[in-house]
Amino acid sequence: MTLVEVRRNPVGIRPRAVVVGVTAVVATVVVSVFSLGTGDFPIAPADVVATLFGAGNPAHEFIINELRLPRLIVAILVGAALAAGGAVFQSLVRNPLGSPDMLGVTNGASTAALVVVILGGSDLQLSVAAIAGGMAATLLIQLIAGRALHGFRFILVGVGMAAILTGISGYLLTRGQQMENARALLWLTGSLDGRSWTQAVPLLVVLGAVLPFLVLACGPGLRILEMGDDAASALGVPVSLLRNGALLAAALLVSFGAAAAGPVAFVALIAPHLAKRLTRAPGPNLLPSIAVGALLLSGADFIAQHALDDRALPVGVVTGLVGGAYLVWLLTTERRAGRI
């Protein structure tokens, strides 16, 4: 009897998790087709698919491959990157609120990007600064929190770091001129306007390298680490090596995501949370989180582009509204269920 049950359920890969992941991927594809077909020049879904497979007419090819596809790809990749980063952070600090936007990593990227904006730097410089800022903030938190990289100490140091960086950002904004501040505010909200292959390609390369590392090399260890440091060490998990490696990889994803689209609100917090709630599985749920993150951001950007008739919204406005509402709803239901 148990033989069958164990075989069905070997190392935590549950049928339900597979269903959630596959559903999210399929939904992302559907959203993508509609997203690519919608705009000032509407294209029928069948033509969108034909064009993607290289059988479209030249006009469709230009609109889709050059104008709409890069933006969509950036949305999907940034969503995936933020979600994976968020899942790793939440798993490492063993707290569902321990996302990189709460713990200073995203703030590091924002502050560094603001400096570039105030100095009138180029978009490329801004992206590089955002990556450097996110990584620098992470290293600093790691250094201050020391060996107690899990739990409250890390959260407290991270929240402190976020507060300091928010203060610095506020100061920078008071020093900026009107033009610069408008650019800064748009970037800080998170926007995918005008994103092209220039942003998509580096993201693709980084995700291609970091995601397999996280999923294959860190995933099994992260699952074990959720049982506590002692239990994980006893099972032969190289705890500090794994924790530092996974943290840096996650910070890299979040920083590249922020560099490409700005610090888009709530995706890193909500996507892993939603994935866990849907799969009901223990562990960081990396693959389902990634799929949910891609769906969230591509869906949010579709809404942002077409919700208002006259002008498009920055995607960060939509994720902020939807994410905030989700969080409030979650807290209310959890409270009613007596869990918090």
């Binding site: 049982m227 506590g228 002692d230 239990a231 006893a234 032969g236 009901r280 223990p282 562990g283």
Partner: peptide, 30 residues
């Protein structure tokens, strides 16, 4: 550490069972 873990086991005083884990899954982590 992995080699040691094949010879020497430890049941710590406090371990956390991750949310929603089943008995078979937890035992399988051994």
């Amino acid at each position: 550490t992995r080699t040691v873990a094949k010879t020497l086991g430890l049941l710590p005083q406090s371990s956390t069972a991750p949310d929603g884990i089943t008995v078979a899954e937890l035992v399988a982590r051994g």
